[in-house]
Write a protein that binds this DNA or RNA. Structure first.
Lengths: 101, 101
DNA sequence: TGACCTTATGCGGTTATACGCATATTGTTC
DNA sequence: GAACAATATGCGTATAACCGCATAAGGTCA
């Protein structure tokens, strides 16, 4: 893998590397959601959610689809969930160590 | 998943979300490496590599082991490679779209 | 001990992220 | 067209990430 390839991978991972965006992706894994629904995930401004969605969209993780006044988002690459699972694995190992010492 | 859990996951993903750190993890997947070897991966200062390794270590992705003057790093949670594979999948979908339009 | 090798850290500057507020944009309904 | 609802964007600010340089810290060997 060269630097350029690593850079693209890093950009995709970075797009997911924010607590709100993790919540969004996890929620979208259960089905499509409009912005107004996703807005309830955290106590933040609506404009902020909109920006997080733009980040995920730019990275190719989600796509959007307008239906009347609402815009629905859905996961374009469900395999992104594996990245989250992996994060859980890392957490588990850390817990073992925490409990050990 | 609550916000706190999402935050921890995001931190782990963020630790991986940098081109140099992606290169490091990919290299470590082939076996343990000392800092001086990893330093050849990119044309950056040695102190910079050391800092990137500290980030990966803090996230629980790698551990280190001193052997004489050298410090060897190795993957603590190889499943982190799945996160990278996933990034590749996202890239593939993007390529299809790029080629289509 | 002193010269040398390998790795880590303090520091300052630059750049990128994240956020809320206000407001624009898009679409609906009356 | 006017009022309203849902979403996106411009802007200023606060915070965090990244980098190189210099140097410290840990280890080796003559």
């Amino acid at each position: 893998m060269n630097y350029q390839q690593a850079k693209i991978r890093a950009e995709i991972l970075k797009a997911l590397a924010h607590p709100v965006r993790v919540l969004i992706v996890e929620t979208l894994s259960k089905g499509n959601r409009c912005v107004c629904e996703l807005n309830k995930l955290a106590d933040i401004d609506q404009s902020n959610i909109s920006r997080h969605l733009a980040v995920l969209k730019k990275a190719g993780i989600v796509t959007d689809c307008r239906d009347g006044m609402k815009v629905f988002y859905h996961l374009r690459t469900p395999c992104i969930l594996n990245a989250l699972k992996c994060a859980v694995e890392v957490m588990k190992v850390e817990d073992k160590i925490r409990n050990y010492f």
